[in-house]
Computed example of a mutant assay.
Amino acid sequence: MAGDRLACRECHAVVDPDEEVCTICGSSSLTEDWSGYVVIEHPEESDIADEMEVDTAGSYALKVR
């Protein structure tokens, strides 16, 4: 896990540990239990973003429990 950051259970965005809601989707369902990490800079051109259903640039966890 990257520096005790949190991941959103809804959209898998990775956020700072002091956040109370996801900065991408606004969900308050955040967890420390995640693994894998991908940075998506151009979601409109990314096959990974398409597979993950991501349309906003940012950092995302690959697996969230």
Rank of each mutant, 00 (worst) to 15 (best):
R65K: 11
L6H: 03
E19P: 07
S46Q: 07
W34G: 03
V38S: 14
H42C: 01
S29N: 15
Y37N: 08
S27I: 08
A13Q: 14
E32N: 11
T23Y: 03
E10R: 11
S35N: 10
V64I: 06
E53D: 14
I40R: 12
I24T: 15
C11N: 02
M1W: 03
H12Q: 11
C25M: 12
S27G: 05
R65I: 04
I24L: 13
T56I: 13
A57C: 00
H42Q: 12
E19D: 14
A13M: 05
G58D: 08
V38T: 14
H12C: 06
L6F: 06
V39Y: 02
R65W: 07
A7G: 03
C8F: 05
H12G: 00
T56V: 14
R9I: 00
I24V: 15
A61R: 00
H42S: 10
D50Y: 05
V21T: 15
E51S: 10
I40Q: 11
E10L: 08
A7L: 03
D16N: 08
Y60D: 06
S35L: 07
E45K: 10
H12T: 03
S29F: 03
R9N: 03
I40A: 09
V64Y: 05
M1E: 08
T23A: 14
E45S: 00
A61C: 03
G36M: 07
E53A: 10
L30R: 07
A13K: 11
E53S: 13
E10A: 11
E41H: 08
S35T: 12
R5S: 06
V21L: 09
E32L: 13
M52C: 07
A61K: 08
R9E: 09
G26Y: 09
A7S: 13
V21K: 15
A13W: 02
E45Y: 07
V39N: 12
P43I: 04
R5D: 08
T56S: 10
R9Y: 02
V54Q: 13
S46C: 09
M52Y: 01
G58P: 05
D50A: 08
R65H: 10
C8P: 03
T56W: 05
Y60E: 02
S59R: 06
S27N: 02
E41W: 04
T23C: 13
C25T: 09
C22M: 14
H42G: 02
P43M: 00
R5F: 08
E51V: 10
R5I: 02
V38R: 11
A13S: 15
G36F: 04
G3E: 09
D50E: 15
G58K: 11
D4M: 10
G58N: 06
S59K: 06
L6G: 09
M1K: 01
C8V: 01
E41Q: 07
E19L: 02
P43G: 02
G26L: 11
V54T: 13
T56R: 14
C25Q: 08
V54L: 12
A49R: 10
A57I: 00
L62T: 09
M1G: 15
C11D: 09
E10V: 11
E19F: 06
Y60M: 05
D50V: 05
D55N: 13
D33A: 14
E44C: 03
D47W: 01
Y37T: 01
D47P: 06
